[in-house]
Design a protein around this nucleic acid. Structure first.
Lengths: 245, 245
DNA sequence: CCTTTACTCCCGCGAAGTGGGAATAAGGGG
DNA sequence: CCCCTTATTCCCACTTCGCGGGAGTAAAGG
């Protein structure tokens, strides 16, 4: 790979992380000679990828700030994930889903089916969050105050005999989910249906989506779900690596 | 400026504008040889600045999408504008402001005073939009449905004998403002105070902020305001060029 | 299964980037 | 208001690193 490109992206990454830097900071952080750093920074400023407010203050420029806002990360995650999820569905002999949280509702962006067993989910469908594995993962990774707001505002309907509707129990589930990094759901939304989900996060730990496997069976058991956890984790890693190498 | 950096940014810009491209598209649009385009694209993909969903589909990667969301464009505009506005204030012998719209209120981000005349504005202060020049510019460049929503919801208080409170008149002012690119206000918020404002927009015409000059005088006149329009326009151009070269 | 299309890889030439250092300009503090 | 500090700009010979044509290869879609 061209070295200059790497150096250039090092500079951008560095400023992206640090917020504002002087040229000296940049040179030091990226391990670049002074003049090289200056040359790169000048080129980036000239193109609007960096901006210098005052002396010794470089920051991200308008071009980059605008680029981010035009397209949503969710749409990228969706297209990136489609193939890995199809592989996951085959490998685990289960349905695979990708979803994000939208206005406290789980929004399914990708569904990859497996076998004949029919699951009611569909792409673009919205479901309640408290009773689905994906929903639990997404809720659990919200800021604490938003979790509380959700728990207070929520109207937790009993969809099956196993649906958890008690606020305290849900809160504990969410805490546990956040701690261990995955969530399950066994017949909480529909009979014979169980689910295992993990989050998709960026390198800083911010969660942007979640993926899950869903199994339809006469004999629901946690063990059958957890067998799939390694494969799910691997898919998670693959997607995260594609998004944030 | 290093040529490779320029080519690299050409590629990024190209994908940013086109949304999704194949390698061939990129090479064609940027006028690059195939192998060169491939080398650049690979490097960008390896760093997460581009992502390839499937064959022939490159798009912006997670790194860039995330970079944009972390910092706000408003904060950049604020720091970039401070110096040009100070110069503007000196040159026009007036107070200069930068503001954005936040929840239908004008939010002042930068104030550069001139002379002794005191103006009530302050940085971080919020004012009503319908009766200020900056507010009119910002409102006028909202999507039509949001303008209508503002006009319907608004409670237009008469602050001075000259405040415009009639919805129909305000609507016409906004249309005219959008057409000609600037707005004035003569004693609509306070006695002896008049104002002239223009928008700060990106290359696609999207308005992100507005700047203004404010004059305190015993004899308010449109002419004295419009004398300042060229200087204001020049400052606008300078800021826009710094943001989006 | 086959075809098409996009991607990957290779290699010698030479243009293009490198980087040490000195001059210059621009702020901020006293 | 001036000086001092610190960031920035500029220069130039060296040599590395990227260039780019084309042939091979893998993958998607019919």
């Amino acid at each position: 790979m061209p070295e200059l490109i790497d150096k250039t992206l090092d500079v951008v990454d560095c400023i992206n992380e640090a917020g504002v830097c002087s040229l000296a900071d940049i040179a030091a952080r990226c391990g670049l000679p002074f003049s090289t750093a200056h040359r790169i920074v000048s080129a980036l400023v000239a193109r609007g990828y960096l901006a210098s407010a005052k002396r010794g203050q470089y920051r991200l420029g308008g071009r980059i700030l605008l680029a981010g806002s035009r397209q949503s990360l969710a749409s990228l995650i969706e297209t990136i994930s489609r193939r890995p999820l199809r592989d996951l569905a085959r490998m685990t002999r289960a349905h695979a889903h990708l979803a994000v949280l939208d206005e406290d509702m789980v929004t399914y962006l990708v569904k990859q089916s497996w076998g004949r067993a029919v699951v009611h989910s569909q792409e673009h469908m919205q479901l309640e969050a408290y009773c689905t594995a994906i929903g639990k993962v997404l809720l659990a990774n919200l800021p604490p105050d938003e979790i509380e707001a959700y728990l207070e505002a929520g109207d937790f309907v009993r969809l099956t005999p196993f649906t958890i509707t008690d606020v305290e129990t849900i809160r504990n589930h969410l805490l546990e989910t956040r701690r261990c990094g995955w969530a399950t759901e066994v017949e909480e939304t529909a009979p014979h249906l169980m689910c295992l989900a993990v989050p998709i996060a960026d390198p800083k730990g911010q969660v942007h989506a979640a993926i899950s496997v869903s199994i339809v069976t006469r004999q629901p058991s946690h063990a059958a779900l957890l067998d799939r956890l390694p494969a799910l984790q691997e898919t998670k890693s693959g997607i995260e690596a594609a998004l944030f190498p």
